[in-house]
């Protein structure tokens, strides 16, 4: 057994860290899109909008019931064969779309749970003073549901950051791709992938600290 080549790792770290912005870009765009989509899906389910409700149930079931990797391959390799406008879709776009749809399905369920957690009497009170459905969702229900769902949604965001590494399989050179290329030349796979792992770990730890602060702040708004 040879010792870890720490010098090589130190050399490699800045190279791979250079791809952090790409990782964060994919995760942030997919997260924002997924949040919006998930809120809409959750509202459709909570209000039991006819027809749409059934479609949304199937959508959620499919995206939760199949592996993310399979979904990404479907978008990148499969659909362009039958949907002409998708021909030539680049790996980054396909990854963002795949992550958005996949995570929106999970997030919709936790947002739905949080919405249903808002005491029924508050819905009725809002209706009784003459608020429209939209007003009561926007002003009373969603602000409270967001607070309840925030920790779970933050966990999905962290999961999403790690899942961007799958874009590697769509030919995107992100952190994994860069590490693979470097290691292919140096044969130091352990060092290369260890650097990738440490960088992901550092990002996630940083976010976890932010998450705890955010939760403390959200909690304060309704504190005594």
């Amino acid at each position: 057994m040879r010792p870890l080549d720490l010098g090589y790792m130190a050399e490699l770290a800045p190279v791979i860290a250079g791809y952090v912005p790409l990782t964060l870009m994919m995760a942030v765009i997919a997260m924002i899109a997924a949040l919006v989509l998930a809120a809409l899906l959750a509202i459709v389910r909570v209000l039991r909008v006819p027809v749409l409700d059934r479609l949304v149930a199937v959508f959620i079931s499919f995206f939760r019931g199949t592996p993310l990797l399979v979904q990404l391959f479907l978008f990148y390799f499969g659909l362009p064969q039958v949907v002409p406008p998708m021909t030539g879709i680049d790996g980054v776009t396909a990854a963002i779309i795949g992550l958005t749809l996949h995570f929106s399905a999970y997030m919709a369920e936790s947002i739905r749970g949080a919405i249903l957690g808002v005491d029924r009497s508050q819905w009725e009170a809002a209706q009784s003073i003459g608020m429209t459905q939209g007003q009561l969702l926007r002003r009373i229900v969603l602000p409270q549901a967001t607070r309840t769902a925030a920790p779970t949604l933050m966990n999905y965001f962290i999961d999403m950051i790690k899942s961007t590494s799958l874009a590697f399989t769509l030919g995107v050179t992100e952190m994994m791709g860069a590490a693979q290329k470097e290691a292919a030349g140096s044969f130091m796979y352990l060092e290369a992938f260890l650097v990738v792992a440490l960088i992901y770990w550092a990002i996630v730890e940083t976010l976890s600290v932010g998450q705890r602060r955010l939760e403390a702040r959200l909690g304060r708004a309704v504190a005594r």
Binding site: V118, S121, Q122, A125, S128, I129
Partner: peptide, 21 residues
């Protein structure tokens, strides 16, 4: 229905206060 609700006011058994307000 909205017009009717705007002319009536309801007091609930379990208050129904908006917790975020």
């Amino acid at each position: 229905i909205l017009a009717l609700r705007r002319r009536t006011a309801f007091v609930f058994q379990n208050y129904g206060l908006f917790a975020n307000k």
